[in-house]
Design a binder for these strands. Structure first.
Lengths: 164, 164
DNA sequence: TATTGTTATACTCTATAACTATA
DNA sequence: TATAGTTATAGAGTATAACAATA
């Protein structure tokens, strides 16, 4: 139930972005500036490379990201966030933070910290025993990045999948 | 991450059941013996009634559930678990409990209790502020019932959706 | 007329296959 | 020969529409 509510709130926060929560993940990665190829990004996020093409098409059309040729490998395209994309990302981050704060409202500051610590312990253990893929490495730096989910057309929620 | 791992474990636990985690939900409801119509069950679980038809077809074919005419309303079909279905459900419940225990292994008994309490506080608050539907009422009695998720053919996870 | 259940159909999302260009 | 990216196609899953039976 808790996860479902979080998923819904996160989806609502980024609803106007092409691709929804998945679009947010791509935009965040582009803004971080470490995307040297579409394929690499697709693998990190657990997205098929063909889906990545469509997703980038939409984000590029809205002027949020840009595809630039990699001078070192002319097959590959670097993905960067435009100025507008960076601005949009900032606004979305704020919304996501607000959504999280709202969900955590019933707990005081100390309890929230304890809760986070417990989740982190459990997640690390789960990750070690059953590695879900590279996306989780990103989670260490930007929790929202890996925690976002997607919503299907019919109102169900999906978690971005792990590797393989 | 934590949820994703839980979802994967739960899916693996009921992988041999038609419909996966969703089939488990239906079987559990049938065994509880309060299903007076397919439509009612579909609404509780947030499944489309047409999908329910296909799902029940599969479960019935395996001899796990039975459709019986409702004497009070000849349009409706009651859904009950067969003896075999009840046995299978018991085995699945055990597997799900084991999976949960495994995930909670890093925490001692006291910490698990504290964690559960916090999740419950947060879930109740989320539910009150943004009611996700009737499936959550069931969760009070049988946490696993509402917590299971589904996996798509491509390895992504879906949460059974709320009402509407 | 409205509701339960079924079937047939359409739609959405994702993955597979084939192609071009580079390495 | 292998890889990055694109496009076209096929597949799974779900919902919509139409139907028969019953209320």
């Amino acid at each position: 139930m808790l996860f479902r509510t979080y998923a819904r709130a996160a989806e609502a926060a980024v609803a106007d972005l092409p691709g929804g929560p998945r679009g947010y993940q791509v935009l965040a990665a582009a803004a971080a500036g470490k995307v040297n190829s579409q394929l690499e990004l697709a693998r990190i996020l657990g997205i098929d490379r063909t889906v990545m093409t469509y997703l980038l098409d939409d984000l590029e059309q809205r002027g949020l990201i840009e595809r630039q040729p990699d001078p070192a490998d002319r097959r590959a395209r670097r993905v960067t966030a435009t100025e507008k994309g960076t601005e949009v990302l900032g606004a979305l981050d704020e919304r996501l933070r607000a959504a999280e704060a709202y969900l955590m409202a019933p707990l005081d500051e100390e309890a929230v910290a304890a809760f986070r610590a417990q989740v982190q312990i459990l997640a690390r253990h789960a990750n070690a025993a059953d590695p879900p893929g590279p996306a989780c490495a990103v989670a260490e730096q930007a929790p929202q990045f890996a925690a976002t989910v997607q919503r299907t057309a019919r109102g169900r929620y999906k978690l971005s999948r792990s590797s393989q």
